[in-house]
Design a protein around this nucleic acid. Sequence first.
RNA 1: GCCCCAGUAGCUCAAUGGACAGAGCACCAGACUUCUAAUCUGAUGGUUGGGGGUUCGAUUCCCUCCUGGGGUACCA
Length: 589
Amino acid sequence: MQALTQQLTTLAGEAFVQSGYDPQYGEVTVSNRPDLGQFQCNGALPAAKVYGRNPRDIAQQIADQLQAQPIFKEITIAGPGFINLTLTDEFLAGFVQQMADDERLGVPPVVQPRRVLVDYGGANVAKPMHVGHLRAGIIGESIRRLFDYMGDDVTGDVHLGDWGTQMGQVIVELQRRLPDLPYFDASYTGPYPAESPITLADLEEIYPAASAQAKENPAFAEAARLATAELQNGRAGYRALWQHFHDVSVAGLKEDYDKLDIHFDLWLGESDVQDHLDDMIARLQAQGLTSESDGALIMEIAEPDDKKPMPPLILRKSDGAVLYGTTDLATIDMRVQEFGSELILYVVDHRQRQHFEQVFRAAYKSGIAPATTGLEHNYFGTMNGKDGKPFKTREGGTMKLKDLIVLVIAAALARMAESHVAEGYDEAERQEIARMVGLAALKYADLMNQRTKDYVFDLDRFSSFEGRTGPYLLYTAVRARSILHKASAQGLAPGPFLPPTADAERTVMLLLTGLPDALQQAYDTRMPNHLADYAYALANEFNRFYNACHILREENAAVQASWLALTQLFRRVMELVLHLLGIEIPERM
RNA sequence: GCCCCAGUAGCUCAAUGGACAGAGCACCAGACUUCUAAUCUGAUGGUUGGGGGUUCGAUUCCCUCCUGGGGUACCA
């Protein structure tokens, strides 16, 4: 099934051809002047320039052509040559009926599915997740679900940060605290303990301490660098210790991500390419792409026509250790070779833009990524406090993701108590509703923002339940389900769609036809905020309809059945869009 | 220094080069013996950071300046 705007664009394009113009001018979009028409075509204006004609005359030609189509109730020309289109109610109801009869709700799948890998975790071994990790997970999860729905073969990979300098820092800090552990004894040969010497809580305390030490104490930093290099080189005790850090961290991370309903197909990390690094570097050397500079092995990636400076990619530091650019490059190699990835999306914050440009250039230049492989940094803005500076808690630290989740769920519970919602439900269900409401608030507050922009971390907004919020969407979706349940209990069932009679009803139908456009736009731009915008607009219009048309009290049975069908379709569309945003809907609330 | 990004209502944010720059929050005035008021209706609120330019048309493209943020080879 084709999107309505596509069908209209095809019709208008044919009309342009009939009049001797290029079909590209036939693009039809939803009108931004709903008082003048439901859809608009602005093609007459640019066409006028190209063909040297009066735009209004061209618009008139197109309008005359389109008049032959019985689907239009009204075609008008306004201003310098805008063509405004309004559909007949009969056609609109018929189109919505087709959507309802379609399993995919009228959303066409991609023509050529690709193997897509979404890299979106951002989580690090040994570092607890803080609020800054929120966006990568939430946006990445939404992109992964969207690509999946659109028909691509998608894999999500958390790509753990587990092979960098922070590992050495934690090792050295732990050695300072517990020097007698066998992991630090270079002469130790026996098997290492199977039990981790530290817990997740220990790790979460050790890392910040180690990180602070490294900043203040050059000797500590030097020791950490050395330890990192030795770890990468294969020092047995460090490897054994690293494994404990990894396992303990991953267990904690899985718990956090599960709580957020964020799921990865792969839990790979930087360390998973360690065995390929030497080989890859040797290949790059054989290709003559590398050189030595200040003791480091580098790869030049600047091009003669560059307008900005482009530093080389450092493959190996002077101390022999690798940086994340090297592991990222090797990871591309693995994804292309082993997974057959045709498109790799990195959902990582915008501070990494230059880094990814370097890595992508190196990948294409060396042939690690074929020219046909898409490498995209789908960056997002950083999270600032209300003062516009990077967010800090009142105490000046970072807020843990866990704590934030607890906060929003508590706020949801408080709000429920306040409005006497779910009072008769058992405790487990109340808790579950609060979890969904709190997370919906949190996720929607994030996803409604344009991905690329910095945004303000505002707890009040995250735990707000009124207006344009996640809970508003849940409330509306639950409201629709509630009506359907009540109707069903009264023996009423949805029936065929009738032409709309009320304004709000017509507008809900029109908005429903925009579903494929919203998904396509979000898909093309990899920006879930378009889904978030659509969900709100649709829910808002449904609430207007709800207030204007009393469904269960309607006396005309056919109209009532049609309204129930509309309610049901609305509900299905909301379920889909909220699912694509990673938001769960409670059964009732 | 150089490079990148941003600046729109009091606040947080929208607006494929198109029509009268839109939402939410806050504030004000209304609608509940309810299909769940976490809702709905209405009102107020703007020199789109400043200045030039391109265009029939600029929040959008170009130049310049101001302000803020980020990046700038051995952290991630």
